[in-house]
Design a binder for these strands. Sequence first.
DNA 1: GAACGTCCTTGAAACGTTTCATCAGCTGGC
DNA 2: GCCAGCTGATGAAACGTTTCAAGGACGTTC
Lengths: 333, 333
Amino acid sequence: MKDVAARAGVSLGTVSNVLNRPELVSERNRMRVLSAIDALGFVRNEPARQLRGGGSRTLAYVVLDTANPFFTDVATGIEEAAHAAGLALYLCNSGEDGVRESFYLDLLEQQRVEGVLITPVGNDLAVVSRLAARGTPVVLVDHGGGPERCSVTVDDVLGGSLAATHLLETGHERIAFVGGPPSIRQVADRIEGAKQAIARAGTEPLTVLETAALNVAEGRRAGERIAGLPTSRRPTAAFCANDLLAVGLLQQMVRLGLRVPDDLAIVGYDDIVYAEAAAVPLTSVSQPRHLLGRTAAELLLEESRGTAEHVHRQVVFDPELVVRASTNLRTRS
Amino acid sequence: MKDVAARAGVSLGTVSNVLNRPELVSERNRMRVLSAIDALGFVRNEPARQLRGGGSRTLAYVVLDTANPFFTDVATGIEEAAHAAGLALYLCNSGEDGVRESFYLDLLEQQRVEGVLITPVGNDLAVVSRLAARGTPVVLVDHGGGPERCSVTVDDVLGGSLAATHLLETGHERIAFVGGPPSIRQVADRIEGAKQAIARAGTEPLTVLETAALNVAEGRRAGERIAGLPTSRRPTAAFCANDLLAVGLLQQMVRLGLRVPDDLAIVGYDDIVYAEAAAVPLTSVSQPRHLLGRTAAELLLEESRGTAEHVHRQVVFDPELVVRASTNLRTRS
DNA sequence: GAACGTCCTTGAAACGTTTCATCAGCTGGC
DNA sequence: GCCAGCTGATGAAACGTTTCAAGGACGTTC
């Protein structure tokens, strides 16, 4: 910047004014400074700027798993809102690793970002609380955090209930839940919702087929277990904790010669793009991913800009059921 | 930091030494400083640190599209290498938007990151060149950029050739390519490779079914077109520019009552996790995504740390064919 | 007991901005 | 011709670190 000032024949302060309050500078000097900047290829030094001025104009989202399409859609929603407010968004991938998560949180705090959005790895929010206590605004995404924190979630109990209700209405009385481990809050809530709906209907209680993880391979394994049951005890419908499981389950059914939805109806969760693209398009519980992200970003902006007393809010969205061929007998070819 | 020094009863310099060269400080003072840091909840101010010291210990990857599993896998590879070198990785999503891309590049340059990895939006590398010319190390990912730049790519001509050769070897003589627009370098190269293989075999020339984009919906549309052809002119095999197209094509075939691979064999590209999970598991050309990312990060580190004369390298990986049921008659149920 | 090392600690300078009080030069009014 | 008021430019201070030359305390050696 010193060089720019020298080349334009003005003082340091004037260059700074051109950059920050151009209306205070005369036309002539503004031009000279701008052309000097251009000629020298000058690039503002953001760290120095921040040191003096404050704001970093940057938000960060610590993602649980970038490989999961659900989270990347949420991230897109966040970015949209951030961009509208003139802020940049950095994505950090914790990869479900608590150590990496806190590594990134430390870094972001040191970097003095304007605020942090996070889908935390576990249920222990100690690191997050520390961050917030020291003054960095934090919003939890797809994870509740009590009244002293902003959060945005989707009602998983309702989602479970929607799925089970739909299966009951299409005539199923023997329903299995496929998913796990139940220590994941989302899984537990979805089971709970399904159980409630079934209790209301008064039919046979929900069977839970626990899986070790929420991926395609586990879905296939669950498919083997279901197919191995005697017809009399085999469920006529399966509600999967997410679409990856549902896809695996569907694939295994086809392989073993069982028909979907005739022999087994399937409901997934998340409504990822591949759910519709499956050979038998999957009925799935859809979450407003985009809106989830956008709302989270807006809460964060509100918290970070709100001068003094900001009221923490916990926003809960409702999921929706998307019915497709995997449960709908009439649309079968 | 001043407060910490005061509370510990030492000078500023000593606090800094505890943080950066603890071996120079006496046991007693080190303890006092550390406990003062703890008590005060002191967090290093990274911008100030950078202003004085230099390095930002941060890399960034400007991703073309975070919703595409291919790129998130590449990102995972990058992160692994960055982490091993003690650096953090920020992900920025250009979302195939040139304006956003250059917004992020500017920001990263101002932020003085150690280096930038990028999968550029278009073929115009002007912004990238400017960045590099000013001294920020840049590595292109999945995009070639001439000898004056480091880049990491996969040989798409070879990939196209592998796919076509496999189809020829399994007895197909009427092969269609599904994909587009051909202005995308990857698409053009894959067509080129397939054409070469077919020319070598001397069979009927490749038909190209151009699509407007590389997604599932376009795949379904292509499926309609293929199914609509009279049997005598209908291809017996389709090579799709990526797996999303292949998934859509497969789905449409099933819907319209055509069998895969009997009536139409299908080969996809990218080998995304959903390729294996399709109801008829897809044969696909697999790219070493993880390795691609790791190598790119290593090149960047080499360039950013290499003191003076760094030789730009263009690394090209070979793709591999993964054969599954969508082309392999023998494994059909 | 003086001279010399070793080991720690210190204070000041520097990094590249922004901000702010001050000042120079003009214009216009009387 | 003088002064008030205004516009625009200026230089210095400040932001929170790191680094480095210099100095202090203490122990060892002759």
